[in-house]
Write a protein that binds this DNA or RNA. Structure first.
Lengths: 126, 126
DNA sequence: CTGTATCCCACGCGATACTG
DNA sequence: CAGTATCGCGTGGGATACAG
């Protein structure tokens, strides 16, 4: 990354995002992914099982989410039967590795929600 | 938590998102926030300093990102001088608490990127 | 320097209808 | 049951111009 004015040196890439990681997080932390992952972490699910578990999601979005997660190797699509079509979605080993980071994130959110809501109210007041 | 395996009962609400947490993460993990946080974690920054540090962001998006982070109490906007307007952005104590979770996330991304890229190529091939 | 104000487009996502 | 097809809207965000 071009350090236009090198007055005091550049930062090491500790927090560096910009390219590939940012894009990955977009794919994997999008609107419905965490809900889906949450379900599949507990048990394999059929398509409509997921719909019922996550009532707010539409067919289209759920399909898109599952395809995206599948493409990234996070979930696996298993054809159980082709006569009356039956499909099951499972989390992959790679998908399971997402849990700890996500848990940490959620714990952060839970822990600081009150403080953040206070900040919002204060900000909105002005 | 390396909890045994997948065949256990539901642990209620652990991975629960849907409502307020999802919305918080959207505000705080959006397209440019991590880059901004990364810069401000290292030093307070002026507006244009941030623009230079994150060349791909536009004025509009940077402003929006800073406002959103400010509203959530993650960054602080400090007026240094009003004659020739001078503003400095700083990370708040609350903002600093975001670092560990984000680091964990980025380390996950970095560690599994190769595997994910393999998954993508495999998926796209079919 | 630090922003606002427009314009505009791509796209995420919902609603609805249809299919194997 | 497990999707695909189509339409349409809201909005995130880029480009550009202007302002205090």
């Amino acid at each position: 990354m071009p350090d236009t004015d090198g007055s005091h040196g550049s930062h090491e890439g500790a927090f560096e995002i910009a390219h590939p990681h940012r894009e990955l997080l977009d794919q994997v932390l999008d609107k419905w992914s965490l809900s889906v992952l949450g379900e599949l972490c507990e048990r394999p699910c059929r398509f409509n099982e997921l719909r019922r578990a996550i009532p707010a999601v539409t067919q289209k979005s759920l399909t898109a989410t599952l395809r995206r997660l599948e493409r990234n190797g996070i979930v696996e699509r298993v054809l159980l039967s082709s006569r009356p079509v039956a499909v099951e979605y499972r989390i992959t080993p790679l998908g399971k590795t997402m849990r700890p980071p996500v848990e940490v994130l959620l714990e952060w959110a839970a822990a600081h929600m009150p403080e953040i809501e206070r900040a919002r109210r204060a900000f909105d007041l002005e």
